[in-house]
Amino acid sequence: MTLFRTSLAAFAAIMIGAFSAASLSPAHAAGGGTKPPAHDWSFDGPFGTFDRAQLQRGYKVYREVCSACHAMSLMRFRNLSQKGGPEFTEAQIRALAADFKISDGPNEQGEMFERPGRPSDAFPKPFPNEQAARAANGGAYPLDLSVIAKARNYERGFPLFLLDIITQYQEGGPDYLKALLTGYEDPPKGVELLPGQNWNKYMAGNIIGMPNMLNDGQVEYPKGADGKSPVPETAKQYAADVVAFLMWSAEPHMEQRKSIGRQVFIFLLLFAGLLYFTKKRIWSRLPEHAPGAAH
């Protein structure tokens, strides 16, 4: 019927347009920041899962580099051992937590005291409050990174944003963060940076307070059987690893969500199929299909 035909045609036109435009037009800069290149993440798509080793390396990068300034207040050490995450062993997270001195109390004397961290403790914050953080960082406030991978995105533009529904592109945040961490450059001629300012090609407006923090060889990765790290110890690799870790921290139940989703989706399609045939069977009782039936 007309309405169906028209809407179907309109939908098809949009989709065809989207596909062809997407394959033709290269990504272009918008709003001061260059569009980040897409990275091939292990967690993208309907079957994506986190790479445990990568998350463990990512935690190490966060711990040794980022955590000097950035808090992750929603994260607790126990999270590091939960299913679908880095899956450190219980013993490992107890050791990781015990590395930190946690302020607790007050005790019976009414005084705060320090004790070794426990798995149920939150990641300690580098600064007691925002003012202290700003004071230590030349006025800039290092953000909490707990859900940063979901709190960042970039504009996809007309055909792509529709296409993303089909390709299930959800990695705008991670792509942007990884590009940002490795996007430091010398400012173009004629641009004077003030102290505490840095030039980053992916930052909106290009001026960023955070300096380049990741350098090749800076973080030592666990060695494989051959005495060498299985992945290169480069800034690029550090960036990918720590961003994967941040993505997991932002969406810790992603693996459970996708696996349940696959089952639910298949169930609903099968059920819809059954309902379709049941519907056909029931409607076949109607007079125009069964002439002579009682009215």
Partner: peptide, 8 residues
């Protein structure tokens, strides 16, 4: 209304 039933 239509009492539409096929023969059982």
């Amino acid at each position: 209304m239509a009492e539409a039933k096929s023969s059982p």
